[in-house]
Nucleic acid binder design. Structure first.
Length: 111
DNA sequence: AGTATGACAGTCA
DNA sequence: CTGACTGCCATAC
């Protein structure tokens, strides 16, 4: 296990996601310089279960669908967490997704 | 070293 | 938008 590799970068970015905002796996992967490794981001977040400080529920796929909800406690925990932040979710899909999308490439570059 | 897996993304229909 | 197929990358065994 490499705690200081690709995974940790994913963790760092995920932790920077502001309250009430969400981002996609591809956005994080692209920020890391490997836009093709979006799948690794998801996997990293899977391992992130060891760290509760990581708001993995704010990371969804490019469609804004909570594809990883089943990785949470059980069922609608992920959705409830998002709704608790003011994010509307319908049938596992984030509503007004583009409006609350947080792009690390832009935000972390001080634009 | 090779195979299997994964919370994806892009393209085509 | 949704569904099916392909491509890419990193990790686990």
């Amino acid at each position: 296990m490499s705690n200081n590799g690709f995974f940790e970068k994913v963790y760092q970015i995920t932790k920077k996601i502001p309250y009430g905002k969400v981002t996609s796996y591809g956005a994080i992967a692209k920020y890391l310089g490997t836009p093709r490794s979006a799948r690794m981001v998801g996997w990293a977040l899977n391992n992130s279960g060891l760290d509760e400080s990581i708001p993995a529920h704010r990371v969804v796929n490019r469609k804004g669908i909570l594809t990883g909800k089943h990785h949470f406690d059980g069922t609608n925990l992920m959705q409830q967490l998002l709704e608790n932040e003011g994010i509307k979710v319908d049938n596992n899909q984030i509503l007004n997704f583009e409006n609350i999308f947080w792009d690390p490439i832009i935000e972390l570059n001080g634009q």
